[in-house]
């Protein structure tokens, strides 16, 4: 018998005896009805509150992103993207950038007048490691958390959003969703049944608190995260 069958066999045998329902040790805490198929489906009612209008959501996103020490720049139009990027380029003295082909990412990468490492047809990781910035698109901005959702398909692969020291996300305003349940629903609807092999919720630049619980940005991933919204 294979180990798979051994383990599944032990599980089935163990489950012959029923367990008490969750919360039954606290008075009134036990679920009296059978546990619904997916109680987490109503998560929206319990998670942190998000305003109903687009303006409220944008404001909440901006506040959360600032708390996370991400740089959020809503832009009035696509024409504002180039000058905003050039300012960053000059301030940080970028020499090389990495990006992927996409309506917004190409627009941004081509605006800089710098050599671009495109990931679309495969790339050399040592070369990407030398890049000052990775520019990607995304799947969603999440107002509730101030984070962005990217995938290996929408953001130029797995490494581009995490290897260069500065990650720049270019998002469309209509990509802003209210909360996490909305983001998961969007991803599921967009990609079922053929999911990208990686989906990542990025909530602020890379960080650690492993030394005396003191926050340091840029532990292994990007030290900086800039989100442009056009």
């Amino acid at each position: 018998m294979s180990e798979r069958e051994n383990i599944l066999g032990r599980i089935r045998e163990a489950l012959q005896t029923k367990a008490p329902l969750p919360g039954s040790h606290t008075a009134g805490g036990a679920t009296t009805h059978p546990v619904s198929e997916s109680p987490a489906a109503q998560a929206r009612e319990w998670l942190p509150l998000v305003g109903a209008t687009a303006e409220e959501q944008l404001a909440l996103f901006a506040k959360n992103a600032a708390d996370l020490k991400a740089d959020f720049q809503p832009l009035a139009s696509r024409a504002h993207l180039k000058p905003a990027l050039l300012r960053l380029r000059d301030a940080e003295n970028w020499q090389r950038i990495a990006s992927h082909q996409g309506e917004l990412s190409s627009l941004a990468a081509n605006a800089l007048g710098l050599p671009v490492l495109w990931t679309d047809t495969g790339y050399d990781v040592q070369a990407m490691e030398q890049c000052d910035v990775g520019i990607t698109e995304c799947d969603a901005l999440i107002a509730q958390t101030g984070g962005v959702a990217v995938t290996s398909r929408s953001a130029g692969g797995r490494a581009l959003s995490v290897l260069p020291p500065h990650h720049i996300v270019i998002a469309r305003r209509d990509q802003l969703v209210a909360d996490l349940p909305a983001a998961f629903a969007l991803l599921q609807q967009k990609y079922t049944p053929d999911f990208p092999s990686m989906i990542s919720f990025i909530t602020g630049p890379s960080r650690t608190g492993d030394i005396e619980r003191i926050l340091v940005l840029g532990a292994h991933g990007p030290k900086k995260l800039t989100i442009f919204c056009v």
Binding site: Y123, G146, G147, S152, G157, V162, I199, T203, G204
Partner: peptide
Amino acid sequence: GQPMTCYNTMYSGPRQPGEVDG
């Protein structure tokens, strides 16, 4: 005590056809 941890990543396979890395 964080609203979300910085990276929450779901993997559903090795590099798939059409993907550039992994």
